[in-house]
């Protein structure tokens, strides 16, 4: 059942992004930026956490999950340190994703050449 939920929710998020791109004719970068910001806002409204609860990876793997993780991390540290926590908590929470992107990105650039 967890797989079905992940499939449907993850798929729906992608379908919404695709619809937004096709209907507004915006370029992919703008859609990705909007998606990640939408995730942060939904997280602030307290809507994204239940979605993660419900769909697991279906909600964390798409980009809005990245915005949600940032907000969650900021608020977690802020609970302890106040405003200062916003500075420390965000990137701590997304560190794994970002550092993996840099490390694996660099590794792949060393190993492979673009095929065109």
């Amino acid at each position: 059942m967890a797989y079905v939920k992940a499939f449907v929710v993850g798929g729906l998020l992608c379908a919404i992004a695709q619809a937004a791109m096709d209907l507004t004719k915006a370029n992919p970068a703008i859609i990705m930026v909007s998606a990640v910001s939408a995730g942060a806002i939904l997280s602030g409204l307290g809507l994204y956490a239940p979605l993660v609860e419900f769909a697991g990876a279906g909600a964390t793997i798409p980009l809005p999950g990245f915005g949600h993780t940032l907000v969650t991390g900021m608020l977690e540290d802020a609970a302890q340190w106040g405003l200062f926590g916003i500075l420390t908590g965000g990137f701590k929470a997304v560190s794994a994703g970002l550092l993996s992107a840099v490390l694996f990105g660099y590794l792949m650039a060393v190993l492979f050449n673009p095929k065109g």
Partner: peptide, 10 residues
């Protein structure tokens, strides 16, 4: 975009 970037062409 870079050649390996996955995107749809209109």
């Amino acid at each position: 975009y870079p050649t390996e970037f996955g995107h749809q062409r209109p």
